[in-house]
Amino acid sequence: MNALEIENISKRFGDFYAVKNLSFNIPKASIYGLLGPNGAGKTTTIRMVMDIIIPDEGAIKVLDGKMDEGMKQRVGYLPEDRGFYPKMKVGEILLFLADLKGLKRQEARKRIDFWLERFDLADWKQKKVEELSRGMQQKLQFIATVIHQPEIIILDEPFGGLDPINTKLLKDIMLEMRGKGGTIIFSTHRMEQIEMICNNICLINKAERVLEGNLNQIKKQYGKNTVVLDYEGDAGFIKNFPGTDKIDDYGKFMEIKIKEQTDPQDLLNKLVGRIKINKFEVREPSLNAIFIDIVGEKNAQDTVSH
């Protein structure tokens, strides 16, 4: 059973395709990552799911129907462009948004108190939104997204602006919701977040789908062609080693894609004695590497052909 089925949707603004022939399914009780570089079409896709933008072509099925007023009660949405009425009090704005979701007043009040407590915002209930910091507002916006206990929550760049503690809190809540049978869809351009919690992903680039499916399977497809190196010293000489294909150097940390016929042991032998090695691991590529591999190449091609 799928929580969301997207079939061949397209959206054009003038001559510009924001989304082109996009299809994917999201199974229930999973966390689904929508990734892609800035401007790939993630937000447009999500807005079409939310019925804020109407697709030119294609069909979107949400749970057992389509996104109408009733369905909006069962979905929680955290947009990328988000904020609150600055002059309203924290308690008021949450009550208003809960009211829009059809929540009874009594029940809404109870849940607002519960969530404010959980996010450590209880003291701020009577304060105006404009007095809150950006991070606090982020947390409030998340509360507004889940206050009505939706079956699906859609989060557009949910981690932007959150500190590590709140990022962890948010991640925990997402996992908890999945545990209760909820479906979470979120978009990001930061791979490490997806790698940690997503079951399935869809990679969008330039309005089109370039990769879709189960994250583990995708990684397996790429095989164990990657060496992860944690080192100290000057490792610039590695790029001269004929067995390497692509190197992503962070200064202390390096992700090396090796050629198919290359034995990782040969590479290790070359390194020993020249730099200090803290870790040498052979594994499947990180999502980041896959992302850059696919998107980087494609965008480079497009730039040439333009």
């Binding site: 939310m50 909006k72 979905v75 955290l78 947009p79 988000r82 904020g83 009425y85 979701k101």
Partner: peptide
């Protein structure tokens, strides 16, 4: 400008 509009639109039509 406060970017609240899209949050509200997740519940109702423009």
């Amino acid at each position: 400008s406060s970017r609240v509009v899209e949050i509200v639109l997740s519940s109702l039509k423009p």
